[in-house]
């Protein structure tokens, strides 16, 4: 009761009422920045051959470790490859793996978790304890072990990541479906005489999907950084494929030649930040309470 305090607001000292545009910017401004970053990276991924005259794998040992210049905007690496070109081409694999891992992981996890919550009983127990089991392991270590066992390569790394990726979606979907299940509109659907599959597809999932979309958006950056991390450790891509994580790895010993590691690092940072900003915006947008303000 006494916890409330609205400060020393008196009648005379009201802040001016914000306009509609100001409110929109307050709410979605950061998300718009995030969306712009992501959009720019998408354009780059699609158009990279037109954005640089160097190929990502064009080796020229005579030009190795040149600092940024007019010819090589971000310098060159140990093999004389243009860092700028490799950075642009690297966006393709980062975005691709991010989307594949998150979308497949979310689809599988949602299906499994949703089905568990809908079926209840033994099946639910089994599925959810299995989920807990996978969640027990530190994800990057487990992915590392699986990727190492499967061998280096993009596909194998994606598979390894998928194994550790689905449980969080299964947990979330499970709890969301559990909440929706006991809602009166679901009981109404039962009373009407709908079959369980239709109730799940038509009633429960559409109402449970909001938080899943938020998690997907926020998780894209997470997947990208994990893949880059695995590549940094030498597991992700097969050289000489351009990839940000492995580029950082190549540059990590080169303290003098900071540009080799720094620029791919910034690229990772910007993509992850972009997805996080966007994810926050999506969450606000889907949350009717936050929307009212």
């Amino acid at each position: 009761m006494t916890a409330f305090d609205q400060g020393s607001v008196t009648l005379a000292t009201f802040a001016p009422v914000r306009s509609k545009g100001q409110r929109w910017r307050r709410r979605y401004g950061v998300a718009a920045i995030g969306a712009t970053i992501i959009l720019v990276w998408f354009v780059i991924a699609l158009a990279c051959p037109y954005l640089t005259r160097y190929g990502p794998d064009a080796v020229d040992v005579s030009l190795r470790l040149r600092p940024p210049s007019a010819a090589h905007w971000l310098g060159t690496d140990e093999l004389g490859r243009d860092v700028f070109a490799r950075l642009l081409y690297g966006s393709r694999i980062s975005l691709f793996t991010g989307f594949v891992v998150v979308l497949l992981g979310a689809a599988f996890g949602t299906l499994v978790g949703g089905a568990a919550a809908f079926m209840r009983g033994r099946a639910e127990e089994l599925i959810m304890r299995l989920t807990d089991l996978v969640l027990c392991f530190p994800p990057i270590i487990l992915a590392l072990a699986i990727a190492a066992a499967l061998g280096i390569g993009t596909t194998n790394t994606i598979i390894a990541m998928l194994v550790v990726w689905w449980p969080k979606f299964a947990r979330l979907a499970h709890s969301l479906v559990l909440v929706q299940r006991s809602q009166e509109y679901v009981e109404a659907a039962v009373v009407i005489g709908l079959k369980p599959a239709r109730i799940l597809a038509r009633h429960i999932i559409p109402n449970a999907v909001g938080p899943l979309i938020v998690l997907v958006t926020l998780d894209l950056g997470n997947a990208i950084i994990t893949f880059a991390g695995l590549s940094f450790l030498g597991l992700g891509v097969v050289p000489p494929t351009p990839e940000w994580g492995s580029m950082v790895a190549e540059g990590r010993e080169l303290v003098e030649q900071w540009w080799v590691a720094a620029f791919p690092g910034f690229a990772i940072l910007s993509v992850v930040l972009g997805f996080n900003f966007l994810g926050d915006g999506v969450r606000d947008w889907l949350d009717p309470k936050a929307r009212q303000r």
Partner: peptide, 10 residues
């Protein structure tokens, strides 16, 4: 049902 807000699929 009791709750007119929960008994219709929004």
């Amino acid at each position: 049902f009791q709750d007119p807000y929960a008994s219709l699929n929004s």
